[in-house]
Structures are given as C-alpha cells and as structure tokens.
Design a protein around this nucleic acid. Structure first.
Length: 257
DNA sequence: ATGGTGGGCAGCCCA
C-alpha cells in the first residue's frame, strides 16, 4: 500500500509539531501541504529530513506557500503554472515513485464578484490548461490540495445557507467540473462515505463542534491511478487537537503494482 | 450583528 495525503496546515511553523505527530501515527508516503506561510529560506528542512522525508517547496512570506514531502526522492519539480507571472505560491508538481503529484492551493476567492473571485476563476482556467498537459504526459497523476470549492451540495453542511456563496458558487463548481472532465476523478467519491463528512471548519462560532463544515480538500486521480485506489478518507481527529489547523488531512491509499 | 476566530506581522491583510 502506498499512501498519499493532503493537508492545509495554515502555517507550517505553528503546525510542524502536529504534522510530525500525525505522520508518526499514519504511514504516509507522500503528503502535500498548503498554506505553509514560510519563505523557502525558512523551510524546516532539517526537521522534515529527521522524520525520514525529503521535501520540495514553493514558499512566500506570510501568505500561501505549498510543500510536498515524500519518503522517496522528488523529481521534475515545477513551482508555478507555466507562463509564470503569478507571485502567489500555490502550485507544486513533482514526480515520486512514478506518480506525478500536483499539489494545489486554489485561491479562496473571498466573495463572489470580487477581484479575488475573478483571480480564482482565471487561476482555475490556467490550471485546467496545465493539467491537460500533465495528463498527456503522465499516466499516473494525482492532483491534491485545498481546492477551496465544495464539489456538490452533499459536501456542504447547510447547502441552503451557502447557496451561491464563494466556495460553492456555480462558476466555481463548473471550473472544478472541467478538471473532472479532463479525466480526473474525486477519489473520495469512489467509496461509500459517512454523510456530513467535511475537511474544513471555520475557526469561528464553534463550527467544528457543530460540524458546520465543507469538503474542499480533494484528491483527484487519473484513470490509471484511480483504478488502484483502495481507500480515501478524511481524518478529522487533528481538527480537535489543541491549536489546530482549520483543515483536516485527507488520505488516499493505492495498491500500485 | 458587515460579527465571529486564527495566523502573520505590526494596525491591518487574509482565510
């Protein structure tokens, strides 16, 4: 079994002890991290190597930042969407053990109609073009990260309250559907799952305690790797730890022959 | 309640 995970840690500096704890308890081969909020110079490489992982990272000061940790070497690393021009560090691709792994931190979008929302949709369109190319080159492709989009109403604790809002709006879901249409499937939905399972809960108003969450952290797989997927789950336990990230880690396991 | 909480960095930005 080879296991891949994704986790928006909301500051790797703050969450490093929790990451180390979680990796000690879970046999993870590759983990994609988002919102590291560290420059590359500040990346805790020694601490990561000490627990047996190599790392590739694309960081920036204060905001965003992605990193991919792996027990095997990371090859052919890409740190931005082709064409460049975006100073925000939101994408990191690497090949590990024959699997192309794309780590995404999709823009939040703030509110429908805002400049940040337009940036989100433009970013997703550029990402679609990029992923089409990656799919043409790699039979086994995983795209995982914080998509900042709940794919369907069943991924939303209160669809009526959220109707039309950012993270669930029709244009965002359509952009995500276009990624699926490339030949990527939401691995979580390949299995029976308990209802009302989410990956993110707002820090405010006791959202986690009330399970007022959304499933916005996803693992997408190309057909070849999806066929080998044995499980996909969300581990909500770390969200209940002291001083948690607002996101839970999501894991997919594969029988890769 | 155009609030609420948390991270980062210095009175706001961003989620």
């Amino acid at each position: 079994m080879t296991s891949f995970a994704t986790w928006n840690v909301n500051s790797l500096r703050v969450r490093l002890p929790q990451l180390v704890q979680w990796l000690a308890a879970n046999p993870i081969d590759v983990i994609a991290l988002q919102e590291t909020k560290l420059t590359d110079a500040e990346f805790p490489r020694a601490e990561i190597e000490a627990i047996g992982y190599s790392a590739a990272f694309a960081g920036q000061k204060t905001y965003n930042g992605v990193a991919t940790l792996a027990r095997s070497p990371l090859h052919d690393v890409i740190t931005e969407l082709p064409g460049g021009g975006d100073p925000q560090r939101r994408l990191l691709a690497a090949t590990v053990d024959g699997v192309r792994v794309v780590n995404l931190y999709v823009p939040n979008g703030q509110t429908v109609g805002s400049d940040k929302y337009a940036y989100k949709l433009a970013w997703l369109a550029a990402c679609e073009t990029y992923l089409r190319d990656e799919l043409a080159q790699h039979r086994r492709l995983l795209v995982m990260g914080d998509f900042n989009i709940a794919p369907e109403d069943r991924d939303v604790h209160d669809p009526k309250a959220w109707e039309g809002a950012v993270l669930v709006s029709a244009a965002e879901r359509e952009a995500l559907r276009r990624l699926f249409a490339l030949g990527l499937s939401d691995l979580y939905r390949r299995f029976d799952q308990p209802p009302q399972t989410f990956s993110w809960w707002d820090y405010r108003q006791g959202a986690y305690r009330r399970n007022s969450g959304l499933r916005i952290d996803l693992i997408l797989g190309s057909a070849a790797i999806a066929a080998d997927c044995a499980f996909c789950r969300i581990d909500r336990e770390p969200r209940a730890w002291e001083r948690p990230s607002d996101h839970a880690p999501c894991t997919a396991g594969f029988d890769i022959s």
